[in-house]
Design a protein around this nucleic acid. Structure first.
Lengths: 215, 215
DNA sequence: GTCTATACACCGATAGAC
DNA sequence: GTCTATCGGTGTATAGAC
C-alpha cells in the first residue's frame, strides 16, 4: 500500500512527475488516478502539472513510453552476443524476468497498456505501438530462424509469443493471485529464480525439437 | 466500440443491470465506469440502480461473482468423465478456452479482477476469492496426481497454473496486441482452434513425461 | 516554473414523492 | 420500483498573478 514519494532533489520536475505517476497508473489504471494525488505526492500544485504535460493522457503516454524505451533498450543490449536462436530466447526471457523483478510496477503497467488501449487515441499511442512491435519482432525472428534451423518444433510464432508475454508480464502482474498460488511474493528472489527455471523448462521441453527422433 | 444495450424484456431489472455493467467494467475497469452510463444503457435513472445494489462496489462484485460462478460450474461439469489427469487438463483448458471465446468480455473482466484487487475490500471479494481458489484447486490436484503417477514431468504446480491462466485469460484479454500478433481477432473461430492446439501442444510436449526414457 | 482562484462537468450516494 | 431533486466532493483543465 505504501508508495513512497519521489524525493530526490537532483531530478527534474518532469522526471519527478513521471516517477510519481508510474506506480500510481500501474496500481489503479488511467481512470483510477487523479492528478491531485500525483501533484500532492510530487509536492506541487495540481495546476503545475499542466506546465510539464499538456493533458492527463499525455502524462500517461509519457510514463508508458519511458518504460517501453528502457525495456526495449535492455533487450537490444542482450542481443549483442551472437548465439543460437534458442540461446537468444533464453537470454531475452531471462532479461525480461529480471527487469520486471527489478521494477515491481512495470508488469502491471505493461499489462494495462495491453488491455486499456481504449482510453488512448491511436495517434497518442503510435510511438508506444512501434516499440511494442520492435520487441515482438525480435522474438519473432529468433523463433523463425530456430524453426528454420530445425532446432525448434514448428510451433505457431504468434501464440508462442503470447505465451512468453503471459509467463513474464502477466506472471509478475498477477499480484495477490500469484502470491496465493506460489505461497510468497512472486518478487521474492527465490520465486524469481523459480520462474526463470519455469521458462527455461518451457523452451527446452515445450519448444526445442525432441531429440527422440534420433532413437 | 459498439456495446449493445440489454433490451430483452423478459429479464429482471437486476439481470439487465448486470448484463449492461459487465462489458463496461470489462472494457474500462471499475474506476473507468460511471453509474450514469450504466443507468442510461439500461434505460433507467441513476438512482434506481441503488435500489438493486447498495453501492457501485457491490454491483462490481455481483458482476464478477456471476461470471466466476458460471465459469466454475462449467469446469465442474467437465470433471464428470473420470479420465487420466492429462485428459482432465485437456478437458479443462479446452473448456476454458471455449467459454472465453463464447463470452468475449470475460477474459478482460477476469484479468482485471486479478490486477485490480486494490479497489475491493477483502470482505467484499471473499466469495469471489473462494471461487477462484476452487478453480485453482481443481487444476492443482490434476497436476499433482499426474506428477505422482509419473505421467507428467515434475514441474512446479503454481507456475504451471500461472502459465495456463496466461494461455487462457491473458490470451483472450490481449485485445489489439493479440490481434496484431496473430493477424486476426483472437476470437475468430480459426484462431480459437489455433489456441486450443497451442495449449494441447504445451501439455503434450511441455508437461507430459518424455517417452525418450524408454529408448 | 509554481502559485491561487476558478470554471464546469461528473462522481457516488441520499431523500422523498409517486 | 422508478422517478426528480439535490448533496458534497472530485475530476480535468484554464486564467492570470508572481
Amino acid at each position: 500500500m505504501a508508495i513512497p514519494a519521489a524525493t530526490d532533489t537532483t531530478l527534474s520536475s518532469r522526471d519527478k512527475i513521471l516517477d510519481t505517476a508510474e506506480p500510481l497508473f500501474a496500481r489503479f489504471g488511467f481512470a483510477g488516478v487523479g492528478l491531485r494525488e500525483v501533484a500532492d505526492r510530487v509536492g506541487m500544485g495540481k495546476s503545475s502539472l499542466f506546465h510539464h504535460f499538456p493533458s492527463k493522457v499525455q502524462l500517461y503516454v509519457a510514463v508508458m513510453e519511458r518504460v517501453f524505451q528502457e525495456f526495449d533498450a535492455r533487450l537490444e543490449a542482450e542481443a549483442q552476443g551472437e548465439s543460437s536462436p534458442i540461446d537468444q530466447l533464453h537470454a531475452w526471457t531471462s532479461a525480461s524476468v529480471r527487469m520486471l523483478a527489478e521494477h515491481p510496477h512495470w508488469a502491471a503497467l505493461l499489462l494495462r497498456s495491453i488491455i486499456e488501449g481504449e482510453v488512448i487515441t491511436e495517434e497518442d499511442s503510435e510511438r508506444i505501438d512501434r516499440l511494442y512491435e520492435q520487441i515482438v519482432n525480435r522474438v519473432s525472428e529468433a523463433l523463425q530462424s530456430g524453426i528454420a534451423a530445425g532446432m525448434l518444433r514448428t510451433v505457431s510464432i504468434p501464440h508462442t509469443i503470447q505465451t512468453f508475454i503471459g509467463m513474464t508480464i502477466f506472471h509478475f502482474a498477477s499480484g495477490e493471485l500469484g502470491e496465493d498460488l506460489v505461497g510468497a511474493s512472486v518478487y521474492e528472489p527465490t520465486q524469481v529464480e523459480a520462474q526463470l527455471a519455469h521458462i527455461r523448462d518451457y523452451i527446452e521441453f515445450g519448444l526445442r525439437s525432441s531429440p527422440s527422433a534420433a532413437c
